[in-house]
Amino acid sequence: MIEITDIHKQFGRKKVLNGVSFTVNKGEISCLVGVNGVGKTTILNAIMNLTPLKSGKISIDGEKLTSSLYNKIAFIPDAAISLPHYNVQESMDFMADYYDTWNARRAKDIVTFFRLNPSDKLHDLSKGNQAKVNLLLGLALDVDYILMDEPFSGIDVFTREQITEVFSSYLVEDRGVLITTHEINDIEHLLDKVILLDEGKIYKEFNAEVMRETEGKSVIDVMREVYNG
């Protein structure tokens, strides 16, 4: 379980996170939603110790994040993070060099699934294919938790469909997944937990299926209530 307790973050005078707490459980797909600039990415960065917090606590299965835990939790940011002059295979080799949890067989499966060509150089790839490489490098790690920042942003419909398929596949099964997105449409039927952020706080946290059952509302319905007043 990833436990986020009362985290605060400020950029200059601007309070971005103002006491946010929630948990991410294994075997569940959780989604942080909120309009742009609401601090979703900051939360993921903070979990991965890539940005300092003003206060608050984050633990992963009860432990504080140290570099050895990067074998247990993977982050797929919304930016290409491999070297552009590498090809797909070299990017995978790089991962294999450092991560104990790199699963070469699964990596091969994903390359096939995404129809990537191992000898393609990253800087020659389309934006959609670059996003796929990013996913590949994260998903092929045998980690317990995966964080994904805006996996659908700026990607064409068909790539989006392919990426959506990842979420109902064995690639994420039994793992704890935390996604941020403002394009909820594509994945709302895949989510377990939805965490709505607004003005640095959690406005609402609910199970999508329970929301449909008890109030007959889709995730977008709930979002509309929050952001339209």
């Binding site: 569940e28 109902s168 064995y170």
Partner: peptide, 9 residues
């Protein structure tokens, strides 16, 4: 996977 939904569902 066939229905493209969450296994928990």
């Amino acid at each position: 996977n066939q229905l493209k939904i969450n296994p928990n569902t």
